[in-house]
Design a protein around this nucleic acid. Structure first.
Lengths: 293, 293
DNA sequence: ACGGTTTAGGTCAGGATCTGTCCTCAATGT
DNA sequence: ACATTGAGGACAGATCCTGACCTAAACCGT
């Protein structure tokens, strides 16, 4: 019955909104008898959501952390906060959860009411970019692409390759990969009839075409490996070999591996090889290592 | 019945995990007949969650964005991503949703399984602080305090006042207020028997005592107003009056109001009054305005 | 130690609901 | 035009839900 299910959801919502509830309060809110509340609590427990209870005065019910995530029942404000938080997390490139944040964001955006989506957008526009700049990535673009990957949908966009040549592409999205501060789309290019990786910040107005496709098998162990191999295949415009006055082991542990390779010279210094298309990024990267060179 | 309710939740979960589903797929996954799936979809619709459907080949079901937020059904990864995103959002002090992010975080942390909480903590520890430093705020502390506010629970902590004096406090939490890059707790100090505001970054090891209290009436319109009035009552150590070479209106719109006050001098310049305890923050604030002075 | 409060849960009866089956209809893409 | 897919009415049997009533157990404050 609709009645019972929605009441269970409402009960869950109440238990998330405040920590402690007494039985009669819940019975009141849900407009049922106390006996039914007890039965509902039992139902929730059977569904795997641990509802604690204490007897005696000052007793009551409380939703504890369990082993599985219960469905999160959010109000408008909270939904907006989560959307904004995820956008910044996906853009941050520091925490190591960008891809998951993106996945969660796609899920959220799918069901985010329009009025809330507007608010998220407004807040996102105000957001200050972290100093240092660099190519900005539009989280909106990212979610469009990630959603297309999830749904096996084709995407059309204009692409500006590294040498500045513009082209129009239509691709079968496979996956989205985050590498340091950059996002890449791994996809089957329908025009070229081959696999390609695209830098998301070089894409212009990506849009899902609505056409579905049968997922193909990627010629690599996983998308991350594929991106890595195509990146190393395409050499950078600038390359650097730097002697760092620090042990190789120390550098290796403190510097992300995709920045470059480290080779020991002696006990107290090592050689660091790296490259980039932008000289300023290269310089910044080296200074951020923070050792003598 | 447990069966029906959990099936509805699972259906909702499936509809969030992928966009398009055919009836027989859902029937298969849920181990019920197609007729029951149709009935379940109808139930969801009656609960306010808009499930679209298309007939014919290539038809199927799809959960659309509606007017209300459906319960979010997250897997472990996504829950961690959201928790981390909210922590950074609460700490960012740039988007204007810090307090709501904190509220959502409290709700999430209440039900976050222990193994996920560990992962969030590990990720949070790695997180790089934004350059510029400043007193760091532990999101963990914030959630403890915010939860105490929500539950009307007392909190005990050691406090280091501005002049360096240490004291132990036990307070009845009223609310948490974000002002620019700072967080304040508005609370009734049980020892002093009066209202106080505490800077969260000056608090040491806050912990809920478990004691509940009857909420008192705050002697101000709202907590934000209270914090503002107690901040202006406690003058800063350094004060500055700066002549800016830009119209007053422009400054007012581009600078947060809590930084200071703006008074026009003539059409092309204005006076900006501000103050802070730390000279370096004051300097940074002025340079961040980004106009001649 | 005791009484009051609060949750736990068994039982019962009547009513409501759910499910699968069967069938017909409508929409849509090939 | 046809095959596919969703919509939904009808039915029968099984199941479940709810409120009422009652007893037990845990717990707090006095």
């Amino acid at each position: 019955m609709t009645e019972t299910s929605s009441r269970l959801l409402e009960l869950l919502s109440l238990l998330q909104a405040r920590r402690d509830w007494q039985g009669f309060e819940l019975a009141d809110r849900l407009a049922v008898s106390g006996r039914t509340v007890r039965r509902d609590v039992e139902r929730l427990r059977r569904l795997g959501y641990p509802v604690e209870s204490l007897t005696g005065p000052a007793g009551g019910y409380r939703l504890r952390a369990g082993t599985a995530m219960p469905p999160l029942l959010l109000d408008d404000e909270e939904a907006v906060a989560i959307a904004v938080g995820l956008r910044t997390a996906a853009r941050a490139s520091i925490t190591g959860i960008e891809e998951t944040a993106l996945r969660a964001l796609v899920k959220l955006e799918q069901v985010l009411p329009a009025r809330l989506r507007r608010r998220v957008k407004a807040l996102g526009d105000v957001t200050v970019m972290p100093p240092g700049g660099g190519p900005t990535i539009d989280p909106q673009q990212l979610t469009v692409i990630a959603a297309a990957c999830r749904e096996s949908e084709c995407v059309r966009f204009a692409y500006r390759s590294r040498d500045g040549a513009e082209s129009r592409r239509e691709v079968e999205c496979h996956s989205v990969v985050n590498q340091g501060r950059r996002w890449y789309l791994v996809a089957w290019d329908r025009g070229r009839e081959d696999w390609r990786t695209f830098r998301v910040d070089r894409m212009e107005r990506p849009a899902a075409t609505g056409v579905r496709f049968q997922p193909r098998k990627l010629p690599a162990k996983d998308p991350v490996a594929y991106v890595e191999q195509s990146l190393s295949a395409a050499p950078s415009r600038f390359e650097a070999r730097i002697t760092l006055h620090a042990p190789a082991a120390e550098i290796e542990s403190s510097v992300p591996s995709y920045w470059g390779t480290v080779e020991p010279i002696d006990e107290r210094s090592c050689e660091f090889r790296t490259g980039d298309d932008e000289l300023s990024w290269l310089a910044m990267r080296i200074t951020m290592i923070g050792v003598e060179f």
